[in-house]
Simulated scan of single mutants.
Amino acid sequence: MLPPIVLASQSTARRQLLEAAGIPYRVQPSYFDESQIQLTEPAQLVQKLALAKAEVVAAQQRDPVLVLGADSILYLQGEILGKPADAAEAERRLRQMRGQVGELYTGHALVDTGRGRRLTHYGLTRIFFAKPSDEEIRAYVATGEPLACAGCFAMDGRGSLFVERIEGCPSNVIGLSLPLLRHMVQELGYSLTEAWDP
């Protein structure tokens, strides 16, 4: 039987993905200090961060639950890009991204508190960016959207205007690879479809 799922994230996009897939959950942010983990390899970094967030929340549980932690970064031209610090950095970064191909990594971690098991994987999606004008970039930054996003754009928002195409899982770019999550839950011996109302 699928345990209750606890999302160790405040991400609206991740919540919307789970809701769209009919997966019940509750939110309990970890407030983990991401600066504690310094790695240069993107796949390792996102998995370590996702697991750290999940473990913080798992330690606070009394009843058996499945804690889901996640973290996303954009890897572009050999550089790891998280959320921009301010509007000026967002503008610089969006200009840097013009016409480039980036790799969006999302780390996924599940902690099964009932069985004492931990599992991590990552999703990878290649993103082919368009070439927005300086005026379009300034207009986008003025909306505030890129300031809250890893990689400085939201695929499920206005930022989708500046993506020509992607290779890989679409939901991974938004914050969770739902196919990967399904496989991970199965690896732990459960099924997400158990959560669907008949």
Rank of each mutant, 00 (worst) to 15 (best):
D63Y: 08
I174H: 11
L181H: 04
G175R: 04
A58Y: 01
C169F: 05
G157N: 03
A54S: 10
Y140K: 07
A195C: 13
R92M: 13
L17M: 10
I73C: 11
A109S: 08
L94S: 08
A58P: 02
E91Q: 13
A20E: 14
V65A: 13
L17Y: 06
L7I: 02
Y75A: 12
R98M: 02
H121P: 01
Y122K: 06
F129V: 01
A154N: 10
V163W: 04
L2V: 03
P64A: 10
S72E: 10
G157A: 07
R126C: 07
Q77F: 06
R15P: 00
R126A: 14
P24L: 00
G168V: 00
V65G: 07
G157E: 02
E89A: 13
L68C: 11
G102Y: 04
L2Y: 04
T193A: 14
A154V: 02
L110Q: 08
S160C: 14
A8K: 06
L178G: 07
A150R: 01
Y190V: 08
L192E: 12
L110S: 10
P198S: 12
Q96T: 04
P64S: 05
A88G: 08
E167K: 01
E79T: 12
K83A: 09
L2C: 06
P3E: 08
A148C: 03
T12I: 15
R98K: 09
L7V: 03
D71I: 02
E194F: 06
S177V: 06
P179E: 05
A88Q: 14
R138D: 09
D71N: 09
P84T: 06
P4M: 03
Y75L: 12
L76I: 14
C149A: 14
D197K: 14
P179R: 11
V111E: 02
